Simulated assay, not measured.
Amino acid sequence: MSPLRWDVLAVGLVLALPVLAMGMRGDFSADEVAVRLPWCLLAGWGAVALLRWAATPPSPAPARRRAGAPGSADPEDAPTP
Rank of each mutant, 00 (worst) to 15 (best):
P60I: 10
L51G: 13
V8Q: 08
V14M: 15
V48S: 00
M22V: 03
D74T: 08
P70F: 04
P60T: 07
V35M: 08
G26K: 09
P75F: 10
S2M: 03
W45C: 08
L4Y: 11
W39V: 01
R25E: 02
R36V: 10
G44T: 08
G71I: 04
P18I: 04
P58T: 07
P62Y: 07
G26A: 08
A67Y: 11
P57R: 06
L37V: 10
L50V: 11
M24D: 08
D31M: 15
G68E: 09
R5H: 15
A78M: 05
R52N: 09
V14E: 11
L17I: 15
C40W: 01
W53S: 02
S2V: 03
S29D: 12
W39C: 00
F28L: 14
W45H: 12
A63M: 07
M1H: 05
R25H: 04
V14L: 15
A69R: 13
V11K: 09
R65E: 14
F28H: 06
D74H: 09
S72Q: 12
L9G: 15
P18W: 05
A54C: 00
G12R: 06
E32F: 06
S72A: 12
L51R: 14
A73L: 09
P58I: 06
L37F: 05
V11T: 13
P3W: 05
T56Y: 02
L4H: 12
A55V: 01
E76N: 10
C40E: 02
L15A: 07
W45K: 08
A30L: 14
L37M: 03
S72F: 10
L9Y: 06
S59L: 13
R66Q: 12
W6F: 14
R64C: 11
S29I: 08
L51I: 13
A21K: 03
M1T: 06
V48C: 02
M22P: 00
A63I: 07
P3Q: 09
M24W: 14
V33A: 01
G26T: 07
S29V: 09
D77L: 12
V14K: 11
A47C: 10
A63G: 05
S2T: 07
A61Q: 09
T56N: 02
L4G: 06
S72W: 10
L9I: 13
M1Y: 03
R52E: 10
P18K: 06
D27Y: 01
D31T: 15
G23F: 00
P3L: 12
D7I: 09
L50I: 09
